[in-house]
Design a binder for these strands. Structure first.
Length: 470
RNA sequence: CGGGGAGUGGCGCAGUAGGUAGCGCGCCUGCUUUGGGGGCAGGAGGCCGGGGGUUCGAGUCCCCCCUCCCCGACCA
């Protein structure tokens, strides 16, 4: 990590390198021993657990229940849905041996669970009374990837995948959109503090086996796009492939309409690339494993006790607080380490402060410091956390807007995508335009209304959000 | 798979007339320090990617293999 002086490569100088150094320097993750795999370290996993909690709560509010399906799937399942197999078979890992012998039927390691989930949906769904069936699972999935990068693209990653079945197409559409808006968009904006573009994927970018894919797209600090959450309408494709039918009120057998939706540990990569700065990670308070670290500047009998008292008071007010009393390590070293990890607020307390009944409060957002009376500390910290949350979003939004250019045609689109996104009438692009853009490594990230809102099904006069993506 | 680069202590690297491996950071011990990457002293840690060859002697030269990284095609 880092260069000889120990500082990070500036973001503007070499963004990918900066990213790797932040991941390493904040102790978020390490490369696993098998190509493309990732070890998520405690700090990174702490962020993931908080994010999981936020997503899980919203998923449950949307009525879905958690369940778990097996890691191994019979190879034959994959072939049941034509587009799905075409999309996924190149990237599946296949287990051919078990117990020292070749398996009679090889099993695949799930790249996603539509097939196995729907195999069971076919058993569980008999009547319209069984609908809607709303299932979510938290799991790992495995895909063969050409190029991998920690969090952004790894051979194995953690995610949640939702799978639902509905009686009507309208219900399925509503649910897919509801998940996109109330679960993904809300978590990404209000918890992760990442501004997003929401919309519909083009046919070219659609999920393999879906009839429609809805997505949240974020803009990273280098102007490139990252897909942060997707919600798919599967129509009746899987229902027909897996024979998922229910008897309606009249006793007529009908195929269900389905959705599937997912968000992964990739979100953490997005978090780093949106909010990180030249000093390391900056975590939004809602996702910081420690929101406040109380640093004992130097060891003496009073400061340790004072730090403990401060930490206790803050904990009682519901904050996640950590004490750093590792005074054997120099103060500067420790300050920089917490800064790299992105802890939103540091409280520094030493003999000088104590003599004045004060402590220094440092905001990670802009590294500003202020000396605050001990009695006002709790409210000062709360205020700083709230300000941090707002400021991170504001800064990301400003960046995104500055790097999103409304343009009129394909040529201008190409130009604008050199530094960010282009917003262009979809009618100016079309499928032929998409092919042309693809040659420059540029894709349509999503289609939305001109005002940025989600389009209705079948609506036209949409604009395309176009950019380079991860 | 196409094009480019690299494999040497944990990390980043140096090391060609072939002569028995070094630097920075990190790590350990002690003293001292601690308000933004401390100082001094001592110390640990390497079949130099693998195999073969040339040679008295190979990190260095030759042959074969493997792996990793970067750029492109695939992707949550």
């Amino acid at each position: 990590m880092a260069n000889d002086a120990g500082s990070l490569t500036p973001r503007a100088e070499d963004f990918p390198r900066w990213y790797q150094e932040v991941v390493a320097g904040a102790e978020m993750a390490d490369n696993g021993p098998v190509r493309g795999t990732m070890v998520i370290r405690p700090w990174g996993f702490g962020v993931w657990e908080l994010l999981q909690g936020e997503l899980d709560r919203r998923i449950k509010e949307a009525g879905a229940e958690n369940a778990y399906f097996p890691l191994f799937i019979p190879e034959s399942f994959l072939g049941l849905e034509k587009e799905h197999v075409e999309g996924f078979s190149p990237e599946t890992w296949v287990v051919t041996h078990g117990g020292g012998k070749p398996l009679e039927e090889p099993v695949i390691v799930r790249p996603t669970s539509e097939t196995v989930v729907n195999h069971f949906f076919a058993k569980w769904i008999q009547s319209h009374r069984d609908l809607p069936l709303l299932i979510n699972q938290w799991s790992n999935v495995v895909r063969w990837e050409m190029r991998t990068r920690l969090f952004l693209r790894t051979s194995e990653f953690l995610w949640q995948e939702g799978h639902t079945a509905h009686a009507t197409e309208a219900e399925a559409t509503d649910y897919a959109v509801r998940i996109l808006r109330d679960t993904y968009l809300d978590t990404i904006e209000s918890v992760m503090r990442i501004p997003t573009f929401v919309g519909l994927k083009t046919d070219r970018e659609r999920f393999a086996g879906a009839v429609r894919t809805w997505a949240c797209e974020g803009m990273m600090g280098d102007g490139k796009a990252l897909q942060l959450g997707t919600s798919h309408e599967l129509g009746q494709n899987f229902a027909r492939a897996f024979d998922i039918q229910y008897a309606d009120e009249e006793g007529t057998r009908r195929y269900v309409y389905q959705t599937s939706w997912g968000a992964s540990t990739r979100l953490i990569g997005g978090l780093i690339m949106v909010h990180g700065d030249d000093f390391g990670l900056r975590l939004p308070p809602a996702l910081a494993p420690s929101q406040v670290v109380v640093m004992v500047v130097r060891a003496d009998e009073h400061t340790g006790a004072a730090a403990a008292a401060i930490a206790d008071e803050l904990r009682r007010s519901g904050l996640r607080v950590r004490i750093d009393d590792q005074t054997a390590t120099s103060f500067g070293r420790r300050a920089i380490d917490w800064e790299r990890k992105g802890v939103p607020v540091r409280i520094e307390i030493g003999p000088r402060d104590l003599a004045e009944e004060k402590a220094v409060v440092v905001s990670r957002f802009d590294r500003s410091k202020r000396s605050v009376g001990l009695s006002a500390l709790a409210s000062e910290v709360r205020g700083t956390l709230e300000a941090t949350s707002a400021a991170l979003h504001r800064e990301a939004l400003d960046f995104r807007d500055e790097h999103s250019t409304p343009v009129a045609n394909l040529a201008e689109t190409l130009e604008a995508c050199a530094s960010g996104f282009a917003i262009v009438p979809w009618s100016e692009v079309g499928e032929a335009g998409e092919d042309a853009l693809a040659e420059a490594g540029i894709t349509v990230r999503c289609l939305q209304r001109a005002d940025g809102s989600l389009p209705g099904v079948g609506e036209d006069a949409l604009v395309a959000v176009v950019g380079k993506s991860y």
